[in-house]
Amino acid sequence: MTSSPRSWARAERLDAARTVDALHARTGVRLARDGPCPGGQVGAAYVRWPDDHRSVLKWRPHSQAADMEAGPLAVVEALRLAGYPAPATELVAQVGHAVVLVQELLPGTTIDHLDHHSLGQALELNQLQADRLADCPDIPTVEFHLSEDGPGYCLHAPLRRHNRRSAALEHWIAAVGADHPARMVGHDAVHMDFHPGNILTTDGSITGVIDWDGAVRGDRRFDLVTLRFGIHAKEADPGVTQHLDAVLDALPEDILRPIWAHMSLRMVDWAIRHFTPADVEHWLNLAEQRVS
Rank of each mutant, 00 (worst) to 15 (best):
Thr2Pro: 13
Thr2Tyr: 11
Ser3Asp: 13
Ser7Cys: 03
Thr19Pro: 03
Ala22Gln: 14
Arg26Ile: 02
Thr27Ser: 04
Gly28Ser: 09
Arg30Leu: 00
Arg33Tyr: 04
Gly35Tyr: 00
Cys37Tyr: 00
Pro38Met: 03
Gly39Thr: 11
Gly39Trp: 09
Gln41Lys: 13
Gly43Glu: 14
Ala44Asp: 04
Ala44Lys: 13
Ala45Leu: 04
Tyr46Pro: 01
Val47Glu: 10
Asp51Asn: 14
Asp52Met: 01
His53Leu: 08
Arg54His: 05
Leu57Gly: 02
Lys58Ala: 06
Lys58His: 06
Trp59Pro: 01
Pro61Cys: 01
Ser63Gly: 08
Gln64Ser: 13
Met68Leu: 15
Ala70Lys: 13
Ala70Glu: 14
Gly71Ala: 15
Leu73Phe: 04
Val76Trp: 01
Leu79Ala: 12
Pro87Asp: 02
Ala88Ser: 12
Val92Ser: 09
Ala93Lys: 05
Gly96Glu: 08
Gly96Trp: 08
Ala98Ser: 15
Pro107Ile: 06
Gly108Asn: 08
Gly108Cys: 06
Thr110Leu: 00
Ile111Trp: 05
Ile111Gly: 05
Leu114Phe: 09
Leu114Cys: 11
Asp115Ser: 11
Asp115Tyr: 05
Leu119Trp: 10
Leu123Trp: 10
Asn126Trp: 01
Gln127Asp: 14
Leu128Ile: 05
Gln129Asn: 06
Ala134Ile: 13
Pro137Arg: 10
Ile139Lys: 08
Pro140Ala: 09
Thr141Asp: 10
Val142His: 12
His145Ala: 04
Glu148Leu: 06
Gly150Val: 00
Cys154Leu: 10
Leu155Lys: 12
His156Leu: 13
Leu159Ile: 07
Arg161Trp: 04
His162Leu: 05
Asn163Pro: 06
Leu169Trp: 08
Glu170Lys: 01
Ile173Met: 08
Ala174Trp: 09
Gly177Thr: 12
Gly177Ser: 10
Val185Leu: 14
His187Cys: 14
Ala189Met: 10
Phe194Arg: 01
Phe194Cys: 03
His195Asn: 13
His195Ile: 00
Gly197Asp: 15
Asn198Thr: 01
Leu200Pro: 09
Thr201Arg: 14
Thr202Ile: 07
Gly204Phe: 12
Ile206Gln: 10
Thr207Met: 06
Thr207Asp: 12
Thr207Phe: 06
Gly208Pro: 12
Ile210Gly: 03
Asp211Tyr: 05
Asp211Met: 07
Asp211Trp: 02
Trp212Ala: 01
Gly218Ala: 02
Arg221Pro: 01
Leu224Gly: 09
Leu224Ser: 10
Thr226Lys: 11
Leu227Met: 14
Leu227Arg: 07
Ile231Gln: 08
Ala233Phe: 11
Glu235Pro: 03
Asp237Cys: 06
Val240Leu: 11
Val240Pro: 11
Thr241Lys: 12
Thr241Ala: 15
His243Pro: 02
Asp245Met: 08
Asp245Leu: 10
Asp245Gln: 13
Asp245Ala: 14
Ala246Trp: 07
Glu253Asn: 06
Glu253Pro: 05
Ile255Ala: 12
Leu256Gln: 09
Pro258Trp: 04
Ile259His: 10
Trp260Val: 05
Asp269Ala: 11
Trp270Gly: 02
Ile272Arg: 04
Arg273Thr: 13
Pro277Arg: 04
Ala278Arg: 13
Val280Lys: 02
His282Leu: 07
Trp283Thr: 02
Asn285Lys: 10
Leu286Trp: 03
Glu288Ala: 09
Gln289Phe: 00
Gln289Asp: 11
Ser292Thr: 14
Ser292Val: 12
